[in-house]
């Protein structure tokens, strides 16, 4: 006479792990693999907000992001540097939970005018008088949104350390697909 093994998810069997634990273990493996893939290889994510219009629409655009272009462990003899014009995604300096998507317009050593747009209506002489310039320190970049009139960027929080730049935005995959270079 054969013995029946009850197969409820919470049964603890002498013959192996309960089914709930087997499922939990499978989910753990799946989550870890997917999480590791998206943080180190590439990820397609939604990118909302007015700051990068018209490059990325304020709503409904999805972008392909990847840390690989800047992936450069210390043992590599060459390191690809972040260059001016790259669209990057970075941790927000004002909120560690958020990420921002901006364009790099200055790298270490550059001298940047903080807000060239400010006082557009003013006389040229007045504009020249009260503008401010910033030299970007070593290991930092200047981020700016393409939509200068509606963007919270380095004009507000200053240059951003490279360690906060997570990777490059390679392409827009929704609407008309467009590769950024």
């Amino acid at each position: 006479m054969s013995r029946r093994v009850a197969s409820s998810p919470f049964t603890i069997s002498r013959f192996g792990l309960p089914r709930s634990l087997i499922f939990a273990r499978r989910f753990l493996k799946l989550f870890a693999a997917v999480g590791l893939f998206t943080t180190t290889i590439f990820e397609i994510r939604a990118c909302d907000g007015f700051s990068m219009m018209p490059t990325i629409n304020w709503k409904g655009d999805w972008v392909l992001t990847s840390p690989i272009p800047y992936w450069s462990p210390s043992w590599l003899p060459f390191k690809k540097q972040i260059s001016r014009g790259d669209v990057v995604f970075a941790a927000s300096p004002t909120d560690p939970r958020a990420t921002v998507c901006k364009r790099v317009i200055g790298i270490a050593g550059d001298i940047i005018e903080v807000d060239p747009r400010r006082g557009e209506g003013l006389a040229r002489k007045k504009r020249m008088e009260d503008r401010t310039w910033v030299t970007i320190p070593k290991g930092q970049v200047w981020l700016a949104g393409d939509n200068t009139s509606n963007s919270t960027d380095s004009r507000d929080y200053g240059p951003v350390p490279l360690a906060m730049v997570h990777g490059q935005v390679l392409a827009r995959v929704s609407r008309q697909t467009k590769v950024y270079r």
């Binding site: 210390s74 560690p96 939970r97 320190p137 070593k138 290991g139 930092q140 350390p161 360690a163 730049v165």
Partner: peptide
């Protein structure tokens, strides 16, 4: 979990050197 407290010792990436 962003549980930052005054007085705790943390490791951080140098603002001037991402490595």
């Amino acid at each position: 979990l962003r549980r930052f407290r005054r007085g705790q010792v943390v490791t951080l990436w140098s603002p001037n050197d991402p490595y």
